[in-house]
Amino acid sequence: MTTFMHRHILSINQLSVQDIDFILDTADSLKEILERPIKKVPTLRGRTVVHLFFEPSTRTKLSFELAAKRLSADTVSVSASTSSVVKGETLIDTAKNIEAMKPDIVVMRHFCSGAPHLIASRIQASVINAGDGMNEHPTQALLDLMSVKEKKGGFKDLKVVIVGDIKHSRVAHSDILAFSKMGAKVTVCGPATLIPKDVESLGSKVELNIDKALDKADVIIALRIQKERQGKVLIPSIREYALRYGINERRVRLASKDVLIMHPGPINRGVEMTPDVADATNSIILEQVTNGVAIRMALLMLLLSAEQDQ
């Protein structure tokens, strides 16, 4: 029996609290497989998952591929350099071509916000948004939820502080939606130039002063700063960012005693956080990576079982 009735995973917005609980529980039970000596089950044998990546990605793609393989699905990877996008083919054409290969699930990352939504409206297969432009990265938010739930037991009234480039971060966007939906209190912090307009409407508070933002925080999520942004109007230098917004030991002490330190990776050590913070015992950055595989396994399974039910 399943209560999961979604065909696609495009946005945290589409998921109810019950959906999210169900995904987290499913991931939790699948995580056990990852601890086995033979980390493979036949659940998705004969199913095909296409990984369609229009933007370079190592970690997310690896995590999705591993998740599919652990469940015995066949996987195909199409990346921007090997796809015909470079030859001027439209996204719709690419999608139709992939559709012709009869995949069950298309995992898609694209540099344009809304691109997976466009594909989802045109193909039969299920679509999982693996990051679209500066819009969303729902699987990252789900794995962040899972990682916090493991340590804290729940989300009610937890103070979650997201620090960094909120404006361009799809992780921030999905995390704000996900944590606030589950009952946590989300605060975003960073240089004002990197805070999107009306971000409060997504369900977060804004605190520009990092020390105030971190006060009694239960969870700190530091986001990657794109080094390319420095000197290009929005921030004067990485150096100043690290000084003013970087998470260091002093700042961690402002948070609650058992604060969790998180980062979606890859970290710029010494920029978003000092090495001692990244490696501290309360840092769960590596657990996030493990949970990422479990969450993606859960989604692949739930999407395909929902499809069978229909």
Partner: peptide, 15 residues
Amino acid sequence: NEGPVSTMLGLKGIP
């Protein structure tokens, strides 16, 4: 338009 909807959709806004 830059505002709550552009933020919700993750689209770059025009102020």
